[in-house]
């Protein structure tokens, strides 16, 4: 399978030429930093060449779509599985009008940690294009092979939403949702659940000490799209600005609960966190409970209604 950049460009150009969209959101190369791709918007067909689609397109795009479409802009979005689900989260939350986005699905073979590749194999960036060989990315024409086991971004290592669902159009290449690097979405959750309670607390406390509470996890999250966040309120001041075990607990507990049943498992919080806080282990715990307790299948796929916005008469009653 190849990273069909020309095909992506052609699709983007066609959307713009046919006036199906006012702009296309994708990624561009950072001219100063060979390994970096940042979100980029193209407004004219002649500039689609600025877009890039290769194994280094790390940033998720969904959250940006929210602000971009506020003024009624019609936006074409290059969407991997994670981006597409994020956009759908925002659509179901009435943050994006469905008719304002055109989702151009890109089956995703996983993204590489660019800095790491740059440090260990800078010549990889001489590539003119890339092919996906399952366990490796292969640079064209240099033939340099990057093993995914070593270079996959954390969020992509654990990804189970590779296939772009519910898109207007999917770039016709083969691929699927299956990620050989993540057999069990809930592995880490189960491991933590099996720890004795005091050790579980110690595990999280260790992370609370490292969390800077910079809110990158919240800001990057497509499910965290409230107009004003309860954690920013002063009255009542649920989250005091003082940083201690209790306030960190409140922050992470509340964040996890507020995305319970709404998280699309895009892994952006995990990617954004500078200190590597295992936010995914909280999010996936919530997903697992949605499955276990309420029988929600695929709790990461946004639906019209949310698991915590409904109930069943026979919901378990385990409060004894």
């Amino acid at each position: 399978m190849s990273w069909a950049l020309p095909a992506v460009d052609a699709l983007a150009a066609r959307l713009l030429e046919d006036r199906l969209v006012d702009a296309v959101l994708g990624w561009a190369r950072d001219p100063d930093l060979p390994w970096q791709r940042y979100p980029h918007r193209v407004d004219e067909p002649s500039r689609v060449g600025e877009l890039v689609w290769d194994p280094f397109c790390a940033p998720g795009l969904a959250k940006l779509v929210f602000r971009m479409t506020e003024g009624g802009l019609k936006l074409g979005v290059l969407a991997r599985g994670c981006d597409a689900l994020g956009v759908w989260r925002l659509i179901h939350d009435r943050r994006i009008a469905r008719e304002n986005v055109y989702l151009l699905g890109l089956p995703c073979p996983g993204m590489a940690d660019g800095v790491r590749v740059w440090e260990e194999c800078p010549e990889a960036f001489d590539a003119a294009g890339w092919e996906d060989h399952g366990s490796h990315w292969v640079a064209v024409p240099t033939g340099i092979r990057l093993p995914k086991e070593r270079f996959l971004l954390d969020k992509c290592l654990q990804c189970q939403v590779r296939w772009p669902r519910q898109c207007d159009e999917v770039l016709a290449v083969q691929g699927g949702s299956w990620n050989p690097f993540c057999e069990d979405r809930y592995r880490q959750v189960r491991q933590l659940e099996e720890l004795p309670l005091p050790q579980r607390f110690d595990f999280w406390r260790g992370w609370f000490e490292r969390c800077l509470r910079c809110f990158a996890c919240r800001q990057v999250c497509p499910a965290c799209n409230c107009e004003s966040c309860s954690l920013d309120q002063f009255e009542p001041n649920w989250l005091e600005r003082e940083v201690g075990v209790a306030t960190q607990f409140i922050f992470h507990f509340t964040r996890a609960l507020h995305v319970a049943g709404r998280c699309v498992d895009c892994g952006e919080c995990q990617r954004a966190c500078p200190v590597g806080f295992p936010l995914g282990a909280l999010n996936r715990k919530m997903m697992k409970d949605m499955e276990d307790l309420f029988g929600v299948r695929e709790p990461f796929v946004p639906q019209e209604s949310e698991p915590l916005g409904e109930f069943a008469l026979d919901d378990p009653d385990e409060f004894r």
Binding site: Y38, L212, C214, F215, A216, Q219, V220, A272
Partner: peptide
């Protein structure tokens, strides 16, 4: 700045 998410990561680091 259009793509800034308004977090405090850069300042804290």
């Amino acid at each position: 700045a259009w793509r800034c998410l308004s977090c405090g990561l850069c300042a804290y680091l």
